[in-house]
Amino acid sequence: MTTRLSAQDVTLSYGDRVVSTRLSLDVPDGAFTAVVGPNGCGKSTLLRAFVRLLKPGEGTVSLDSRSVSDLPAKALARELAFLPQDPLAPEGITVRQLVARGRYPHQSLLALWTTADEQAVAEAMVTAEVEDFADRPVAELSGGQRQRVWVAMVLAQDTPYLLLDEPTSFLDITHQYRLLALLSRLRDEGRTVIAVLHDINQACRYADHLVAMKEGRIAAEGTAADVVDAALIKDVFDLPSVIVADPVSGTPMVVPE
């Protein structure tokens, strides 16, 4: 397993409120990493540290053993794309315009809009299944449609890394599985996916690497088959459960008692 992106002994806090102390995580290249854990345990905070939205008080987040804080903003944005939990759509923006904003790190004053940009936007809209409402204002879409538009924007950014904070929220069950299948496909094409997922069974089924967090710490990490057992679920989620094999994929499936 190789690792380009990693956090080493990072301490993450908002002002006086310390979320994580001395946390380390190596993100395996070309794999689908799922982060799970109860509300408020610091999953979003960890992702925010990777994309430099939060500077670690101690420790470093590094890409190719260079600290991400040393990289130029756009250079980092061509490596890591991030979908936050609460993105903000400017008033009156259409789907196509919003997806095109994903191309920002590829542009500069001299490098204007190119065919490659066009292509990336069009492909992202097809992949995220938003082309049917490409010219509608984002504000007029349903929550799930809007979520797919944001996924399209992140895809248009065309980066080797995709960091997604609860990408399946608002999606109906079909689109949840479609998105997870899409992420697996992107992983197969060589991208690295890191997603915060709330459905532990989906995480077990799709993730190559599962990271279970509790109170800012990593309680366990590894393949789902290796780490998920009743004791872990009791420890992390405080939920008594029985673990059975998923009848379709054979991966662990958590059934609450």
Partner: peptide
Amino acid sequence: ALGDSIAVSTGVP
């Protein structure tokens, strides 16, 4: 205008 998170993650200093 896309919010602080996306502004930073798409490369706005």
